[in-house]
């Protein structure tokens, strides 16, 4: 038996919103420790990894590990039937899970709705992602990162990210001209959500597709801050941390000529 009840149901809506543009089908891997998801986009150059700890649910019950194969478009349609303040419970039979039960309860418990989502077999590649010491780790307001991606898309479909000890610079070059945004580290003790920090082992300069990066910024509502981790010749890591876990996006850099 699998059961996971999330008091803050709106979080599940936001999470789905942050994944569904990148991936259409995905396995939710359920275990004693929580729920995780790893999936790549069609071209296999971007990867999303989601982790939700069991402690974030009340209650959480999972007797043995199993996977829920879900079409995210279908799940999204059903999730639209949940109110923003609803408590959401996910239920499935772990021995023969061919459907996922979703229970939406309003705060006064007067209205309960129940939906069953048909599950599917999804045969997906699963990559092992090692813990990495990145050359550069940047924390910045998530809304700022979203704005930079949106603004620079006016100029080009690619952005070069340069990180040095005292600034992170985003540069775009296109047919109409060029644009860049530079941010310096700031620490605002009274407003930590607005601070920018740079941890640097060595300077990095990497180019990425803005289409993917702006897709990743769908995670913005999940966290005030975003973490960007860069190393030469490695995929960029974009992480949004939540109380209950995290969502991590990886993107292969543009290489060659």
């Amino acid at each position: 038996m699998f059961e996971a009840r999330l008091t803050q149901g709106a979080l599940l809506k936001r999470l789905l919103d942050s994944v569904k543009e990148l991936v259409t089908d995905a396995n939710f891997d359920c275990s004693e420790t929580g729920i995780s998801l790893q999936a790549m986009d069609n071209s296999h150059v971007a990867l999303v990894s989601l982790s939700l700890r069991a402690e974030g649910f009340n209650p959480y019950r999972c007797d043995r590990g199993f996977s829920l194969g879900v079409n995210l478009n279908s799940l999204n349609k059903i999730m639209k039937c949940a109110g923003n303040e609803d408590v959401i419970t996910l239920k499935a039979d772990d021995s023969s899970a061919d459907s996922l039960c979703l229970l939406f309860e309003n705060s006064s418990n007067e209205r309960v709705s129940e939906y069953e989502l048909k599950l599917m077999d999804i045969d997906q590649e699963h990559l092992s992602i090692p813990e990495t010491d990145y050359d550069a780790t940047v924390m910045m307001p998530s809304a700022e990162f979203q704005r930079i991606c949106r603004d620079l898309m006016v100029v080009s479909e690619s952005v070069t990210i340069d990180v040095s000890k005292d600034e992170i610079k985003f540069t775009a070059e296109g047919e109409l001209g060029t644009g860049n945004v530079k941010l310096k580290p700031t620490s605002t003790i009274d407003k930590p959500e607005e601070s920018i920090t740079i941890e640097l082992g060595q300077t990095v300069s990497l180019q990425f597709s803005l289409k993917y990066l702006s897709n990743f910024t769908r995670g913005t509502p999940l966290s005030d801050q975003v973490m960007l981790c860069l190393s030469d010749n490695m995929p960029l890591l974009v992480e949004y941390k939540m109380d209950i876990g995290y969502i991590r996006y990886y993107l292969a850099p543009k290489v060659g000529d």
């Binding site: 150059v45 590649e125 990559l127 092992s128 995929p235 543009k254 290489v255 000529d257």
Partner: peptide, 14 residues
């Protein structure tokens, strides 16, 4: 033009 390499070239298969 510059292009992206598939993720499986960076991370190994489980």
């Amino acid at each position: 033009t510059r292009s992206q390499i598939r993720m499986s070239r960076y991370f190994s298969n489980n």
